[in-house]
Design a binder for these strands. Structure first.
Lengths: 246, 246
DNA sequence: CGCTCGATTGAAAACTGTCAAGATACGTGG
DNA sequence: CCACGTATCTTGACAGTTTTCAATCGAGCG
């Protein structure tokens, strides 16, 4: 995945889908990408409770953020895909309450608090765009919470697969046909508040109903409309119009 | 940490517990309280999807924020108690994805985007303090999500009652003995992702185990320590040290 | 008084988790 | 090249949790 011109970072692509970005703002955004880092699965990028020095912009690969409970069970709070920020809030406010773990090999841009403050001072519209993206992330968090509280396993899984599809489509990595997805059923289970065994059963159900197939790292939608209906998927929370940039 | 000159609002009290607030900052904060409003239960303050013109600082009474699903079920995302902000993000970013409904008669201060921007410009430390409080709110949201995903009904209810107690204690409305709480079992159910019937059963269980009694608008802790253990309640996410105020 | 709302309880049904056992794929060491 | 171990996926049977349905009870209110 070569990064040749200014417009190609996933984050730039995502932000451009919602707010108009001038060349100056795009250049400032690319400048934030200057410190490249690699991480491998199996070791946390940021550990729970550890106060964080840097945020990251995910360029390629998948990450999950999670919390471990006293009894050892794990709840994945969110998955990050290319174009997503990691630890944005914590780097600005010096708080951290969960861990980040790479799911596959990842490439990321390290961003320091001083980088952000500088970029925000020089290009306020970029600041607004990034904060707006953070607000959208929180809307997804709320939707995730609603799913855990009020959707049964089938609708929850369907909703999750649809939302992930929308997010990936925004950065050119998915469509209404499907997308590549490296998540194991154990990781799905930890994200959806289910057991891995039940995730497997529900996936089979969805497949046998001709709705969606999840297999060998690929999600294939077979009947997008019917899946949307089953999930009660209303993408309004993803489609918010951008902030008023004065 | 006593406040002498300036009238103390619940929000001032809460912020003062975490960051040092000068008289100037306290005065600016109180100035944000100048537009008093009242609301009554039964009608939303802000309706789902409606773009919002104002935020509110809750002065007295309880509010819940919730989302209604296509199938009609409701998930309460959070409860607000005195000293909490309502719609802070939406007023700054013109987005809104859920509804706010008063649970009892409430008093609130209406805050316009221009008020906030003005206050932030004049007293940056106040801005940081408020944004830090918002970050703490999001940590609670995450903890709520973890509870829905990975705690059974008993631990979930116990955790909820404990967290609420901590929040109320911060504004002088609760202690380790208990607190007044106007929530019905139906509202608890919608917040905890349970049925009202099951909430009732679990409350009985907790009461018969000598842990906590919830009755007639009052929560009484009988064995705080054992309840903490049952809930797996680790208040670290509430006790974050304040932001570094440079 | 009749009405609604909230709390309460019982019984049955539905959903989801746990346990156990295979199956498949992959990488590593022999 | 094969044997083996590990990780993931898969399935069945059973247990446990939670929901749903139904009914009762008490308090507040027009």
């Amino acid at each position: 995945m070569a990064m040749t011109s200014v417009q190609t970072s996933p984050l730039a692509r995502k932000l451009s889908a919602f707010v108009t970005m001038s060349d100056v703002e795009l250049a400032a955004l690319e400048h934030l990408h200057r410190r490249r880092r690699s991480f491998v699965p199996g070791r946390d990028m940021v550990h729970q409770g550890q106060s964080q020095q840097a945020a990251y912009i995910l360029l390629s690969g998948w990450v999950c953020s999670y919390k471990i409970q006293p009894d050892g069970t794990r709840q994945i709070v969110d998955f990050q895909v290319p174009g997503d920020f990691l630890g944005l809030r914590s780097v600005l406010l010096r708080t951290s309450d969960h861990s980040f773990e790479p799911i596959v090999n990842i490439e990321a841009a390290e961003v320091w608090a001083s980088d952000l403050l500088e970029a925000f001072a020089q290009t306020p519209r970029l600041a607004t765009a990034i904060l707006w993206a953070a607000s959208r992330d929180e809307a997804m968090l709320v939707e995730h919470l609603v799913g855990l509280g009020r959707r049964d396993a089938e609708a929850r899984l369907a909703h999750f697969l649809l939302e992930l599809g929308s997010r990936l489509t925004l950065v050119g990595m998915g469509s209404k046909e499907g997308y590549d997805c490296p998540l194991t059923q154990y990781q799905l289970a930890d994200g959806l508040g289910l057991s891995a065994v039940h995730v497997n059963r529900v996936l089979r159900q969805l497949r046998e109903d001709g709705l969606v197939t999840v297999r060998e790292g690929h999600v294939a939608f077979h009947d997008y409309g019917r899946l949307v209906e089953l999930a009660g998927f209303d993408p309004a929370y993803l489609d918010e119009t951008g902030p008023l940039l004065k």
